[in-house]
Design a protein around this nucleic acid. Structure first.
Length: 948
RNA sequence: GCUCGGGUGGCGGAAUGGUAUACGCACAUCACUUAAAAUGAUGCGGGAGAAAUCCCAUGUGGGUUCGAGUCCCACCCCGAGCACCA
């Protein structure tokens, strides 16, 4: 018998499939289309490690499965070849980026090909080829013509090491995403794409996509929509200037808390603008502004939680109370969000509270949570009384128990409680109630729980409805000295001591008690939830949601929707990218390069290193150009595009990759797109996906596409770690190279192993021993087919075979490849136990294994079974529903829920029969001996449980 | 700090609320071999027992249920993301 030699057979079949064009996607096919997209790789110098192909293999299996199920599958590969790493690497080794990129692509392609992936290679694309970037430039010009690409001077993120601008999204923790260099802020004129015009559509388009929930959430968070209002505060007392002439706008999402705004905070950026406009501030204020603006983003992030600020010595007028409030400058308010200034409501915002406490600023409560007591709800027709209440929470430190009242006439358990009399101090009122109701007199104040709670309930002992505004006061008992109490009190309730676990609404009558608990444990006493307004004059008693609109109206503010998303900065001051196709003319301004002159080719430069200005700027030959409008002397744009522009539309190009007249043919793109499945690393959840969705919507608006969302279904691939459980990287020395592995054990082994490792979306550490398991499995398949006689029939095998067909299909569709592989192993274990399998059974097994191990199966299919046509042109076998149904069932017999035996019964056996058989079981009867059966739980064909 | 995921043998992991530990790795013993590798067979969560079998175990503690890895509550630990966005 010939030995299984993957090295020999895999290359052979790959060449044959290539030659036959087996995986070419036919634009004109009558079959329903299925477009499978895959992250196109950035071809780095290091080549692939075993972690990279995991997603590719999964997609390949899926693609082969879809083809076998009658779909015309578009499945492709290309190269995201422009970009910084290639350029930096080229500088390091003293070669040109062109050379380096070419070599990298060649190596990547060789590696990718050895995995036996069923790409349509005729559609390969390379973003650094003029044939591709011509259309990237065309896209830029379309955006420019639509007013969506524009220049503006802005503070941008600058990486001093790479000497280029970074998009907000490329800054991680204040550092360059690529090399960890701290990013600095710089004022520069830059190209931007107006993605903020699409915020609402980028949000609404997420509805109905089959994407992981976490990814949708992250996109939403990134866009960061918040609805609020812009309110105007007039300013007084600006030193050296006339009163009443100035004002400041603030953005808030909580206009309902306006009455609680006890000061304003202005960002250093806005304060700087005031200085520039002639504000005469004190030296102290000027120093603070300068220092905070000089601080790097990174330091500002590190300082979170340690608030700094300075009194601006300006007064503002709260438009609701018309009272004067101070204005402060602090860097916890961002210059780049909203209006750069806020109203501070310390009672209802944690950050404002922290600031107010630190600088001793007033705190005013204006919203209280509102509870309608569900056990003692207000009774219709009874009079309603408003009360200011206290609850006294008294702990006995000796026992750790809490003082409670058990009412005699009602089924109530309460704290000592009561009303606060006019002008009475809250603590005093609480002490008074404890004394009156329980007689305890020696109390030590622990704390007043910040914030009132409003509750509506029926007070049966007074036969009235109450709206109570309650504050809780916590005491420790100093000693147990008690004074005599009034007969009226002592007859109403008994004193009881409650365990701390009983202090909740389940065990106590107060609807407020759960909130007391929550507040006792929470870190910040600021109440940030909704509720009912207090201390807000005519708005008192109003629901906070309702109050928002009314207060905005009453002070002449305007509603405003604010987004976190900023416009996308796209110019880069580096060489290895797409030249921006624009001309700067002294007379005509900025003029796009005419379409007929595209592409603007990236010139070959001897010295392409960055020197603080774009490398292209130093090439006179490149820069000098005639203005397309007036033909006068002009210069080209010297910057290149962010590579995310290249990758924001590549998936469209696959549908018509060779078109040199148009970016793509409309019929073709509308036929294949949107992509039905996209497998992509979780690290791309914000940047690439958001940009791609934006570009798709834009091209749709321009009439080039008839759909708005490019990717219908998204799957994330979990990272394979090194054997040490850490992320694979050269520096850690834990990289496993697929070349040696494929050479030794074959691509089929690698494919099967990577799918078998665990759930697809999770990451697992590589295990060089574990892979032997699947290698053995494939060897056993090989041996089985080479020695078994494919004759006769074996009905016993049909059941597991057909079950496996069903399971494999379902597993592939749900990306549960690990259990699909274990299913194959179980099936093989079964097959090996039978001497003979029929030709039909043998073929069926091969067909379902084919997507996973395409080479091995093809070899057996043609060589052993003698087929002329490729197994990869076969249809997915149908399973026989009748064969899957068992004719006997293993019924679990339990006594009191514990399994005591299993009985085999014909499928569909009724309770009486099952019971009879179950009782015959020795072990079962032993457990039932002499006991009364109280109850029997019976689930047909599954279980019978005797409860005794 | 906030928001999501997730804690199951020595390891990767499996398990519509119904015999937890499938499948594979590692390990042990045996067969084949002069020997090793390869291959095959058997065993393999912990404890008690000669065995039948019993008890305990899915991060910890409670709860719901005839029955919980699975559902609910609290806590602990790990991972990911966001991080002063008013």
């Amino acid at each position: 018998m010939i030995k299984y030699n993957p090295k020999k057979i895999e290359k052979k079949w790959q060449n044959k499939w290539d030659k036959d064009g087996l995986y070419r996607a036919d634009d004109k096919s009558k079959k329903p289309k299925y477009y499978q997209l895959e992250t196109f790789p950035y071809p780095s110098g290091a080549g692939l490690h075993v972690g990279h192909p995991k997603g590719y293999i999964a997609e390949d299996i899926h693609a082969r499965y879809m083809r076998m199920n009658g779909r015309e599958v578009l499945y492709t590969m290309g190269w995201d070849a422009f970009g910084l790493p290639t350029e930096n690497y080229a500088i390091k080794v003293g070669k040109s980026p062109q050379e380096v990129a070419r070599a990298n692509i060649k190596n990547f392609k060789r590696q990718v090909k050895m995995f036996g992936l069923s790409y349509d290679w005729d559609r390969e694309i390379d973003t650094s080829s003029p044939e591709y970037y011509k259309w990237t430039q065309w896209l830029f010009i379309q955006l420019f013509n639509a007013g969506l690409a524009y220049r503006k001077t802005a503070t941008v993120n600058w990486c001093p090491k790479d000497q280029t601008v970074l998009a907000n999204e490329q800054v991680v923790d204040g550092k360059c995403e690529r090399d960890g260099e701290p990013v600095i802020q710089k004022e520069m004129e830059q190209w931007f794409f107006r993605i903020t015009d699409y915020t609402e559509r980028l949000l609404s388009g997420l509805e109905g996509l089959d994407w992981p929930e976490a990814t949708i959430k992250r996109q939403k968070d990134w866009i960061g929509k918040s609805e609020g209002a812009v309110l105007n505060f007039s300013l007084n007392h600006i030193s050296g200037q006339e009163d009443g002439k100035h004002s400041v706008e603030i953005f808030t999402t909580r206009p309902d808390t306006l009455f609680g705004a006890t000061f304003l905070v202005v960002s250093p950026e806005l304060a700087k603008k005031w200085l520039d406009l002639g504000w005469q501030a004190s030296d102290k204020v000027k120093t603070y502004i300068k220092e905070s603006l000089d601080r790097k983003e990174l330091d500002r992030l590190e300082a979170v939680g340690d608030k700094t600020g300075v009194d601006a010595d300006i007064k503002a007028i709260n438009p609701a109370t018309e009272k004067e409030i101070p204005v402060w400058i602090a860097d916890y308010v961002l210059g780049s969000y909203g209006t750069g200034a806020i109203m501070a409501v310390p009672a209802h915002d944690e950050r404002d509270l922290e600031f107010a406490v630190k600088f001793n600023l007033p705190i005013k409560e204006v919203v209280v949570p509102n509870i309608i007591d569900r056990r003692n709800p207000p009774v219709k027709g009874k009079k309603s009384v408003e009360r200011r209440n206290i609850h006294a929470i008294v702990r006995d430190p000796d026992t750790g128990k809490y003082l409670g009242l058990k009412w005699r006439k009602f089924d109530w358990t309460t704290f000592p409680m009561g009303g606060v009399e006019d002008g009475e101090d809250i603590v005093a009122a609480a002490k008074r109630e404890v004394e009156e109701e329980t007689g305890f007199v020696n109390l030590k104040l622990v704390k007043v729980i910040e914030g009132q709670v409003r509750a509506e309930y029926f007070a049966a002992h007074k036969d009235e409805n109450r709206v109570a505004y309650t504050t809780a006061v916590v005491f420790d008992l100093i000693d147990r000295e008690q004074v005599e109490i009034d007969e009226k009190e002592s007859s109403a309730h008994d004193i009881i001591w409650l365990d701390s676990s009983k202090l909740n609404y389940e065990n106590m009558t107060h609807a407020e008690v759960d909130i007391w608990n929550e507040r006792l444990h929470s870190k910040s006493p600021a109440y940030t939830g909704d509720g009912v307004l207090i201390n807000s004059e005519k708005f008192d008693g109003l629901d906070s949601a309702k109050a928002k609109g009314e207060i905005v109206k009453s002070v002449g503010g305007k509603k405003k929707v604010q987004y976190r998303l900023r416009d996308w900065s796209v110019s880069r001051q580096r060489y290895w990218g797409v030249p921006i196709p624009m001309v700067h003319c002294p007379d005509c301004g900025i003029v796009p390069v005419p379409e007929k002159d595209l592409p603007v080719k990236l010139p070959t430069l001897k010295d392409y290193r960055p020197k603080g200005k774009p490398p292209l700027a130093s090439s006179e030959k490149f820069m000098k150009v005639k203005c397309p409008k007036c033909s006068g002397e002009a210069t080209r744009a010297s910057e290149t595009l962010d590579t995310f522009v290249d990758s924001s539309w590549y998936y469209l190009r696959y549908t018509d990759p060779k078109n040199d007249k148009n970016i793509f043919d409309k019929d073709k793109v509308d036929h294949w797109m949107p992509a039905d499945l996209y497998v992509i690393g979780a690290e791309h959840t914000v940047l690439h996906l958001l940009y791609s969705r934006f570009i798709t919507k834009f091209l749709n608006d321009q009439g080039h596409l008839n759909f708005e969302e490019p990717f219908l279904k998204l799957k994330h691939v979990g990272l394979i770690q090194g054997e040490d459980g850490q992320k694979m990287s050269k520096s850690k020395g834990n990289v496993v190279n697929p070349d040696d592995l494929v050479d030794k054990m074959g691509a089929d082994t690698l494919r099967l192993y990577e799918m078998f490792m665990g759930p697809f979306e999770d990451g697992q550490p590589w295990d060089s021993k574990s892979i032997l398991g699947v290698y053995r499995f494939l060897n056993r398949v090989w041996v089985l087919y080479n020695k078994s006689e494919m004759e006769g029939k074996n009905d016993e095998l049909n059941r597991i075979l057909h079950k496996t067909i069903k399971k494999t299909g379902e597993d592939i569709e749900n990306f549960r490849f690990n259990t699909a592989v274990s299913g194959f192993m179980k099936l093989l274990n079964e097959l090996e136990e039978h001497e003979r399998i029929s030709q039909d059974q043998a073929e069926t097994f091969l067909k379902i294994l084919a997507p996973f191990a395409p080479h091995l199966v093809e070899e057996i299919w043609t060589d052993v079974l003698g087929h002329k046509k490729s197994v990869h042109l076969e249809s997915w076998p149908a399973y026989d529903k009748k064969l899957i149904v068992e004719d006997s069932a293993d019924v679990i017999v339990q006594v009191n829920g514990k399994a005591r035996g299993v009985i085999k019964l014909p499928v569909g056996s009724e309770e009486a029969k099952t019971r009879e058989e179950a009782l015959k079981e020795k072990n079962v009867s032993a457990h039932l001996e002499g006991k009364n059966i109280k109850k029997v739980i019976f689930i047909k064909d599954r279980l019978i449980n005797f409860v005794i």
